[in-house]
Nucleic acid binder design. Structure first.
Length: 288
DNA sequence: ACGTTTTCCTGAGCGC
DNA sequence: TGCGCTCAGGAAAACG
């Protein structure tokens, strides 16, 4: 389940292995993987062919590579997407969706592999003439906590204004990007906040602690090459990260809290799960 | 206008 | 052995 640290690992891999190369061939093997490209798979392939790939960028969980004036190749890994740099001779992966071949003699190609097809690639116009500009279609995605331009004060003000709960807010990519279910639970555990805490009641120190916690856990995961529970998240070389062994809350149902020893609990939450320590993270008092 | 719910997808794991 | 069920969840669309 790629979140910010995992996507950043992939961005670095793209930067190293495909930036600067010229696209020679594009094969779209599954239409759903280009569904964000409104003009369709054939148009996607035709317009990407011949382009030179620029510097790899990331905002939250989105990746993009400028491919010309005002145009970028945008990608999202969704739940199970992988961007792999493979030898051309390597056998096709079962869920290979898009193949990009290059005009050089390096012998490798870029592959988008995605079991559940929640992710995808598309070509998107940029917000302005700046070749590095953010694609228009992700202009609504907030900066992420590791972005130097992230505005902590504005984040706190937005939390106070919203009538929602803190985990919903963490997962709302228009408030803060890059945080998914894993790092939301980890940040809340570190900040000792219950997932159902109304954001309007958060004090400034609490929202500051929450942000600091998110930054710490994501930076630590990045240093380990990302989190992986299975083979679904890998870097561009197909390798998994090692952070999962250091998670404090996510996936640790019935295991002792590393702070107080109380068994971690799993609660059904929005058709998914929230992991928390019932002692360190007390539920808010019911309203009314 | 804003907050909430639904929707998309496939494979692993499990009980029977 | 195989069937049906549940679970994993990002983010946009649909809904209220």
């Amino acid at each position: 389940m790629p979140e910010l640290p995992e996507v950043e690992v992939v961005r670095r891999g793209l930067e190293k292995w495909v930036s600067g190369r010229q696209v020679a061939t594009v094969q779209v093997l599954h239409p759903r993987s280009v569904r964000r490209h409104a003009a369709g798979g054939a148009d996607f392939a035709a317009r990407l062919t011949g382009r030179s790939l620029g510097t790899a960028h990331r905002r939250g969980k989105y990746l993009w590579i400028p491919v010309g004036p005002g145009l970028s190749l945008l990608g999202h890994l969704g739940m199970s997407g992988q961007l792999l740099v493979q030898p051309q001779a390597a056998p096709d992966e079962t869920h290979l969706r898009i193949r990009v071949g290059f005009a050089d003699a390096l012998g490798t190609e870029l592959r988008f592999v995605d079991q559940r097809t929640f992710g995808g690639l598309s070509l998107e116009p940029a917000a302005d003439a700046d070749p590095e500009a953010t694609p228009l279609s992700i202009a609504h995605i907030a900066r992420d906590p590791l972005d130097p331009l992230f505005d902590d004060d504005a984040f706190h003000a937005a939390l106070r204004r919203r009538r929602t709960t803190v985990k919903r807010a963490l997962l709302d990519q228009t408030l803060v990007s890059g945080v998914g279910n894993i790092y939301a639970d980890e940040a809340l555990w570190r900040a000792r906040l219950h997932y159902d805490r109304p954001t309007a009641t958060l004090t400034r120190p609490q929202s500051a602690l929450l942000l600091a916690s998110a930054r710490e856990v994501m930076a630590a995961a990045l240093a380990q090459g990302g989190t992986s529970f299975d083979s679904l998240y890998v870097n561009v070389n197909g390798e998994s990260g090692y952070f999962s062994r250091e998670l404090d809350a996510y996936g640790r149902e019935d295991e002792p809290c590393r702070r107080c020893g109380t068994p971690i609990r799993r609660a059904a939450w929005m058709n998914r799960s929230s992991y928390f320590c019932p002692r360190c993270q007390r539920p808010p008092r019911p309203a009314g």
